[in-house]
């Protein structure tokens, strides 16, 4: 970890204007973050546009108007969909182009993050971290708006790390897998897609649930960025350099 300033010592308290800055986000992380932000934004908008064509979800291999949906969804309003006016073909064009960006972007990010050791260094979840006592302490720290360990300010806290791990390794891959399982050609190429998802209509339902969980992640992610220090957080995701907040709060 590089730093602009001298390491913290006793004199720092006397000069509070001196900010301690660390290099926190590598280029691959920053590039993928912003590309992915755009991609997921487009995937959700165009996906809701597609869903408007048949806003009913089923479990199993088949499901249509005469079958029993487990969920009937409302019509998604134009301010949420891409395009704003119902156009299934154009929604699909957006969705299926950016599906490739999502899939290959994730692949590239994963390779880069193994090579630059972002995964091993920053996202490896250790057993003691997920011990109930530690998780509870982390929940209390969040409720007190303390998001950084003063000892290791650059490290992600446990809940933060878990949410990134679940999103990167579970939710986005789930979206790709269930998306592919809805493709009649991919079902011929890879018949196991239907085995692991439980059928095309199950895949479609799981695709929706995965989207809802990603929306949940985005809301919490943005809320915490705003609570932490949005300017510092956004700046660090653009430049890589992050100001360590003055502590303790």
């Amino acid at each position: 970890m590089a730093s602009h300033a001298e390491p913290l010592d006793d004199t720092v308290d006397a000069v509070p204007e001196e900010r301690f800055t660390i290099f926190r986000h590598r280029l691959a992380t920053r590039l993928w973050h912003w590309l992915n932000a755009l991609t997921i934004f487009i995937m959700i908008g165009s996906g809701l546009g597609i869903l408007n064509a048949h806003p009913h979800l089923y479990w199993g291999q088949y499901g249509a108007n005469f079958d029993s949906p487990w969920l009937n969804l409302p019509h998604w309003p134009g301010w949420l969909t891409i395009p704003a006016h119902y156009n299934l073909a154009i929604s699909r064009r957006w969705h299926l182009f950016f599906a490739l960006v999502l899939g290959f972007g994730l692949l590239a990010f994963m390779i880069a993050s193994l090579v630059n050791r972002h995964f091993q260094r920053d996202l490896r979840v250790r057993r003691r971290e997920v011990a109930p006592r530690n998780l509870w302490a982390d929940v209390k720290a969040h409720l007190a708006f303390r998001f950084h360990d003063p000892e290791r300010p650059g490290a992600y806290n446990t809940l933060q790390k878990l949410s990134y791990v679940v999103t990167i390794f579970v939710l986005i891959p789930l979206m790709l897998l269930t998306g592919l399982a809805m493709s009649p050609a991919m079902d011929a190429a890879w018949p196991w897609l239907l085995v692991v998802t439980g059928g095309r209509q199950s895949a479609r339902s799981l695709h929706f649930i995965g989207m809802a969980l990603i929306v949940g992640f985005i809301i919490v992610h943005l809320a915490l960025v705003i609570l932490a220090d949005p300017i510092n957080e956004v700046k660090s995701m653009i430049t890589g350099w992050w100001d360590v907040p003055e502590e303790p709060r």
Partner: peptide
């Protein structure tokens, strides 16, 4: 044109991943 080229990319990828005679699932 770029957005619509997704169709050709999807076709190219799917055809590359799929045997010419790969069968759709039968029930």
């Amino acid at each position: 044109r770029i957005l619509f080229s997704g169709e050709d990319m999807q076709r190219g990828l799917q055809r590359a991943l799929m045997n010419r005679d790969a069968l759709a699932p039968e029930y």
